[in-house]
Nucleic acid binder design. Structure first.
Lengths: 104, 104
DNA sequence: TTTACATATGAATAACAAATCATATGTTTA
DNA sequence: TAAACATATGATTTGTTATTCATATGTAAA
């Protein structure tokens, strides 16, 4: 009798939920998400708004982009980032659903 | 013109949301929460279910307890932990609310 | 009232993630 | 097509967090 069969939720699922939460639990990434809630922004403008190194912002944007929380398009020399709203919500709702399912 | 006045959400708020998310984004803590969704459990039983060191579990339970996601009561030699459901939900709903507020 | 049992806790270590540094890539303009 | 500009990226450093180790605390039973 191992835990993988008896536990209500398996390790892979826990890992994936964990990963999704981690993406949205870093202060820098959260700040970016909240900034983009208002309007789309170039990397340079995000750097200005958060007063951080361009490299740090780019690294975090990559993580957000990889998890499809934001999307990017080129505009001349700049890259303009915007929210991929649907996915932000789906992550949260997915977790709420999980919890609610376990309830009864 | 500083970001604290112009940004839609201030640094302290970001920090507190970040902290709350971090608590529920660790795989071990998530596993404990999902286990307790089903039934209340002693530390020993959580240790068995997750097949981890007792000390590691206790440390994580402390973090969950400090953020009031779980509560504990003594039962003989054991400590029995259970979910503090309301607070789990309030954290998630708080964030959803934040995001929705920013939307329009 | 000593021993065993269950959990908690402080300190040290290990694992991981973020920021920095240096530089590369891609785009526009002179 | 060289220079300037905007962003991305690999490697290193720094910071943070989880786990382990050793042991303390609290409870119950012999």
């Amino acid at each position: 009798m191992d835990t993988s069969t008896t536990s209500p939720i398996n390790k892979e699922k826990i890992q994936s939920i964990s990963k999704e939460f981690k993406v949205i639990s870093d202060p820098t990434r959260l700040s970016i998400l909240f900034l983009l809630q208002k309007e789309e922004l170039s990397v340079g403008n995000i750097v200005l708004a958060l007063d951080m190194e361009q490299s740090a912002i780019s690294h975090q944007l990559k993580i957000l982009n990889d998890s499809r929380l934001v999307k990017a398009r080129r505009e001349g020399k700049s890259m303009v980032y915007s929210l991929d709203d649907l996915h932000v919500f789906s992550i949260l709702e997915q977790v709420l659903t999980h919890i609610k399912e376990q309830e009864q």
